[in-house]
Nucleic acid binder design. Structure first.
Ligand SMILES: [Mn+2]
Ligand SMILES: [Mn+2]
Ligand SMILES: [Zn+2]
Ligand SMILES: [Zn+2]
Lengths: 142, 142
DNA sequence: TACGCAAACGATAACGATTATCAATTGTTT
DNA sequence: AAACAATTGATAATCGTTATCGTTTGCGTA
């Protein structure tokens, strides 16, 4: 959950992490990217293109740290690699186009509460859930 | 979708595959296992314990073939590996205990139809979806 | 039943994403 | 500015899975 009034520097501090060049650069990148959902490799590639000398290991490490401190959300779509996005505080689920890779977001309160009901009916204590709809997006239909 | 009246031999034939020893053995194992959801490594380990000389590569290959021909369903829970289960014809989703690994199944027609609505609202053509609730099962709660 | 041959097998190398290692560097506190 | 733990980046290692390839096998045909 991100308080948008916090600067990158403050967010990193709040996470209990030192404010280093790689961390600042990666957080800024996530905030400024057109693409909301980015993989570690994509973040790395963007850094390289910006002539940043940041190692791939650092990218993975920082993304994981940001996830653990709540700055980022990690998603394991069925693409073989994790993707990350800033935690904007509002839970949502995803529609993923299996043709072009486009990701759309949605939130449906009814689905959420029905999930909770299901969970209760099974005496299950929900911690998290993942709902992804796979298919063809509007522009990928024939 | 499995026609339960078909023997293993017939199911494999229907899939357009030769009836080989490894395929028969793996299909039978899936049908006779207490555990509904099994990973490739688990299938391999069970075969080894039964003194079957079936290679790990063959296990992966056969599971994938069975999936492609509709005999099995593959799930990518957030466990780092795929798990497989017989396709019993009735779609369902899962509750996964992150403590003991137990998997429970559920089906909620309301959730299904709401997902369809969401999909429609986004001009999205649904092909598949994956809904998994993560948490603590009844026996893992303090 | 034996033959022929594509299909399938199993050992193992290779792969892609991710994590671990470790010497050198850097941020923060004094 | 010194001191020192935290962090970095190059790279080795790991893990689940897939590709390779010489050998074996299922099965349609003679
Ligand atoms: Mn999202
Ligand atoms: Mn199931
Ligand atoms: Zn698309
Ligand atoms: Zn449990």
């Amino acid at each position: 959950m991100i308080d948008k009034t916090l600067s990158e520097r403050e967010q990193i501090r709040e996470a209990g992490l030192k404010v280093t060049h790689p961390r600042m650069r990666i957080l800024r990148l996530l905030e400024e990217s057109e693409q909301i959902h980015l993989s570690a490799e994509e973040v790395y590639r963007i850094l390289i293109e910006t002539n940043e000398e940041i190692g791939l290991a650092t990218v993975y490490r920082v993304l994981t740290q940001f996830e653990q401190s709540g700055i980022l959300k990690r998603h394991n779509f069925e693409t073989g690699h994790s993707v990350f996005e800033l935690d904007r505080g509002e839970h949502h689920d995803h529609l993923l186009c299996i043709k072009c890779g486009a990701v759309e977001e949605f939130h449906d309160e009814q689905i959420e509460s029905l999930q909770y009901k299901v969970s209760e009916a099974h005496n299950f204590k929900t911690i998290d859930h993942s709902l992804t709809i796979y298919g063809h997006c509007k522009s990928c239909q024939v």
